[in-house]
Nucleic acid binder design. Sequence first.
RNA 1: GCCCGGGUGGUGAAAUGGCAGACACAAGGGACUUAAAAUCCCUUGCCGCUAUAGCGGCGUGUGGGUUCGACUCCCACCCCGGGCACCA
Length: 816
Amino acid sequence: MNTSPGAPERYDPTAIEAAWQSRWKERSTNATDIDGAERPYFNLMMFPYPSAEGLHVGNVFAFIGADVHGRFRRLQGFDVFEPIGFDAFGIHSENHALKVNTHPSELIPSNIRRFRDQLRRVGLMLDWEHELSTTDPRYYKWTQWIFLQLYRAGLAVKKKAPVNWCPECKTVLANEQVIDGFCERHPETQVHQRFLEQWFFTITNYAQRLLDNLETIDWSDSTRTMQRNWIGRSEGAEIVFVTPGDHEIRVFTTRPDTLFGATYMVLAPEHPLVERLTASEQRRAVKEYKREASAKDIVARRVGDREKTGVFTGSYATNPATGEAIPIWIADYVLMEYGTGAIMAVPAHDERDHEFAEKFGLEIREVIQPDDAYVERPFTGWDGKLVRSGAFDGMTCREGASKITAWLAERGAGTGTVQYRLHDWCISRQRYWGPPIPIVYCERCGTVPVPEEDLPVVLPPLDDFRPSESGVSPLARNEEWFRVPCPECGKLARRETDVSDTFLDSAWYFLRYPSTAFDDRPFDADVTRRWLPVQSYIGGNEHAVLHLMYARFITMALHDLGHIAFEEPFTRFRAHGMIVKDGAKMSKSRGNVVIPDEYIAKWGADTFRMYLMFLGPYQEGGDFRDEGIAGLRRFLDRVWDLVAHSEPASADTADDVVIRKLHQTIAGTAEDVEELRYNTAISKLMEYVNVLRGRGEDDAGQRSVSPDVLRPLIIMLAPFAPHFAEECWARLGGTASVFDASWPAYDADAARESSIELVVQVNGKVRGRVTAPAGIAEPDAVALATAEESVQRFVGDQTVRKVVYVQDRLVNLVVG
RNA sequence: GCCCGGGUGGUGAAAUGGCAGACACAAGGGACUUAAAAUCCCUUGCCGCUAUAGCGGCGUGUGGGUUCGACUCCCACCCCGGGCACCA
């Protein structure tokens, strides 16, 4: 440690970071002027769930990447709004509260305090004036208000449906929360199927728009692909099969071209027609099979490689193409939730039907002659010609599909249609820790929405908030709370005791941020017009089909109801990658979770920030290794040293090499930061520093460069190392914050190289290099290249058959 | 099974179809130091030839192809990560 008087002060991140953090707070450096901003820029990051463990490095990685973007935009002259909040309702918090046997209303505030503290130390440009928490009645009042808007529009409906039931959570889960048939939060617990009355948002009404709009928004491809797959659009036909008893069985198929090969049908065991179609001699078998199927949980039902089971109903239906009577079976490989819950089985051209037909000895009739004769059976491809298909013989599959659909339509036996895999969003939860759904059930008036002026329906304190085995909400144990007069007739009625899904809380928080000052409206019209949609949203792909889909849906619905002017909430979304530790995913059980605090304490937030942004491409993530951090600290130390010894009189301001490198760095770094290529942006700054260090040395061995070539460096460094940059900026004579400066101007002329190095190849192999003036013409370049001794050796007396010249880059002589 | 990513030195990684390995880490050598740490300088893809300077060959998961030229484009395959999965 150098402590002698007069010696240059060492870089001390602890002191500098604390000083600047309090200065930012005092001066409101990061507060946004919501009403007065000239160039509003909404920079959003995914608000965290305030867990008991505190922020981990994954959260911090996400926030820093978003913060770098926000700070960069600010240096470009935008009024950047970078708010934060807490997603504190939900099963996550509640389960933790149950585990440690403390009420969530006690836990959450202390967790939030810890999070605030951690977030401050990371040095994010957060505007704390607009902090929100989903558990705040001032917030969830409007979550309930959104429910009411959707309810009035018919987009919130109550229906009995097969739902995913987690026996551990003792609640219903959305499909998105079921992973491989197991609960998202309890990987050991299988999810079961139950039929319950639940509130749904009919997101399926928006399936096509959610799909189409994906083309119009600037999102990571990976995220858009996941959404596309989740929506799962399939084109095909709905075809009607009629039974002798005049029952109509509708099926959906993506392969109407194979209709002539449909040799039997299958209904889902829960299909409403099963009862009526069952012949008396099959009654027992069918009943037994239905019982078995309903006893099965969703896993057993959904695992794809399971052996097929099923039972014949004893009835037949007429194949509308062949006129043949084909047997009707029931089997649990047909799912009631998709399509019509019934299929036409074409065992010759569908793997599942094939397996089923083989097992039960049903007819397998090929109606496609594949183009390639040597393909495996069943042939499920599209490249073939129709056979045994009457008038459609000889057509390609594509042609046959549309012709058969048209032919069915003429006879009223079918129609072209589209199916989606997307399911309606089940939003009710039989849990405690969420916003109560604002509905009252009255014996006389039925289902009555709580009047808007009575919102919020406050979640009452409840000592025993455990979920019950029976699936009834904890709130149903609080009679005092749920007994209320009917808002319409005044007679004693009963509140809805379910609460809403956490994903509803987070589906609209970005709308609230700029309007947190208003208590009489969810989002102010003027403010919203100025600040939304969100210009940049950065977050993890784990939310690609949950949060991001729901937020889009809620935004679309609010748009259609006239509350907002846009229908897509996030103009640009970028998914960041995942941080792993020594090649393995971080997890508590592995014991390799990186806690940012200790690293920040040891190295300083700026070094830590820079390391995280440097360790790999931001959108791919990377491997966190302790050894790598020192390099970034060394880099900052070197910059510190340059700043400490800067001399206004230094000649480097006119040094071509320095100036050229500076302007190349300005252009390259801006482009990299713009594209979130933070790792290469930092490496470019390092290159520039290496040039400065090589140039700055005087006769006495003392480095000294002028502040003029350092200031642009400090600005470019500021998004990554904000405290460090502020301190250097001040030491270089800056008065205001470095973030009130502008990103350095790029001068293309200054960046241009005057001489270039031409690579000379012979037959594509590098055989020499020549220095030439930039912009050299081809004949001159070739002459220079050919004259080179090392090139001559490889050309010898062979004739040059061809010359390839790439301007200012290379000459390739093709000889032989 | 299907749909996305990805596979490059000892390590993290970089490269609009045009010098593979920028920038770092680690390692080795040297300077400074009584010594160590820190700092600074040098070396560092592999193999071979050479006393050295240097010279040559090989090299981006594997096998083919396109091209004057391929980490980059095309085809087939292998491995790793993620998503979906009896979705008709």
